[in-house]
């Protein structure tokens, strides 16, 4: 099994438009020759690496190894580097392997993500250590060494600390400015108000607000009616008219009772006494008066009690 090794440097890690910067290595292996006794196949190993300079503590470096094997040569995945510290200043934080069969062999893409924790006092040359790629063909195994990758790491400090200017060696960054959340706050406020208003309206519709005037329309009217005498039948009728008008939002007329019942279906229960009430009202206000005001007032109180029961949801 023959293996060619080449290293590419990338300006962008995800891009595959690298400039070929380093040497291309062609490393023969004798494994395949020993096995088959024929012309050994070549395995291509390409290392795609970013720029080798300009790193500071905490930076990550992504390497990609592309391996094309032939004649069924496979990568031994369980022997790949393990995630975690490689040495005291370098961690391997991520490793992914993609494999696809190609031309009787395999096309491997191995992504390695290193993170540098070296804090140099001046620009320093470091290297990611080399490691072996274990390969196997049947019971035969071989390794291919991925060479060390050299790069420079820079210090993250001032050239000279101006202590006379109040400077300390260790100084925090300027606090990051907050994102502008005015619109979000306004939206939240508006939503909250809408929810509260909807809840209040719903409570009003369901009659959960006991002190609300509309809720106790007929209660208040009933209280006033009790105090009135037969001679005040006109006032009593007016009071009940006002209660109906308030309930409806607009004046209720005899001819508009159908629409009133459509708007307030529970009051259909009072259809007959309400019709009588309007007849009494017409008789009192627009004709020659009610013949029996005692009976009229009594009927009006009963109607008011019925409406009160409807108002409270008891009927």
């Amino acid at each position: 099994m023959m293996m060619r090794f080449k290293i590419r440097s990338q300006s962008l890690l995800q891009s595959y438009l690298p400039a070929r910067l380093t040497a291309r290595l062609l490393l023969p292996l004798c494994l395949a020759t020993a096995c088959t006794g024929t012309t050994p196949p070549h395995n291509d190993v390409t290392l795609l690496a970013p720029r080798p300079f300009g790193y500071v503590i905490g930076d990550t470096i992504r390497h990609r190894l592309i391996i094309d094997t032939h004649n069924g040569v496979q990568l031994q995945r369980n022997s790949l580097p393990k995630l975690g510290p490689i040495n005291y200043w370098l961690d391997l934080t991520d490793l992914t392997v993609n494999a696809q069969p190609r031309n009787g062999g395999f096309h491997y893409e191995i992504d390695l993500l290193y993170q540098v924790f070296y804090a140099p006092l001046e620009v320093k040359m470091l290297s990611i250590p080399s490691f072996n790629l274990p390969l196997a063909q049947g019971s035969n195994t071989a390794t291919q060494t991925v060479p060390a990758w050299h790069f420079t790491v820079s210090p993250l400090r001032e050239l000279a600390v101006r202590k006379d200017n109040g400077g300390d060696y260790m100084r925090p960054d300027t606090p990051a400015p907050f994102l502008d959340n005015t619109v979000l706050l306004q939206g939240l406020l508006l939503s909250t108000l809408t929810v509260l208003a909807s809840a209040a309206y719903l409570a009003y519709l369901y009659g959960y607000v006991p002190g609300f005037p509309k809720r106790s329309l007929f209660k208040q009217t009933g209280k006033k009616l009790v105090k009135l005498t037969d001679a005040q039948i006109g006032e009593a009728l007016s009071l009940f008219h006002q209660a109906l008008n308030t309930l409806n939002g607009t004046p209720v007329f005899q001819a508009g009772l159908t629409e009133f019942y459509r708007q307030h279906p529970p009051y259909r229960l009072a259809e007959e006494p309400l019709a009588t009430f309007f007849q009494m009202s017409n008789q009192h206000f627009f004709a020659d008066g009610i013949a029996n005001p005692i009976g009229a007032l009594h009927a009006l109180r009963q109607l008011c009690n019925l409406c009160l029961a409807i108002e409270r949801g008891q009927r």
Binding site: L237, S238, H241, N245, T250, P251, F253, S281, F285
Partner: peptide, 9 residues
């Protein structure tokens, strides 16, 4: 609107 808003009595 006039007919809807003027009450009688």
């Amino acid at each position: 609107h006039i007919l809807q808003h003027i009450a009688a009595p």
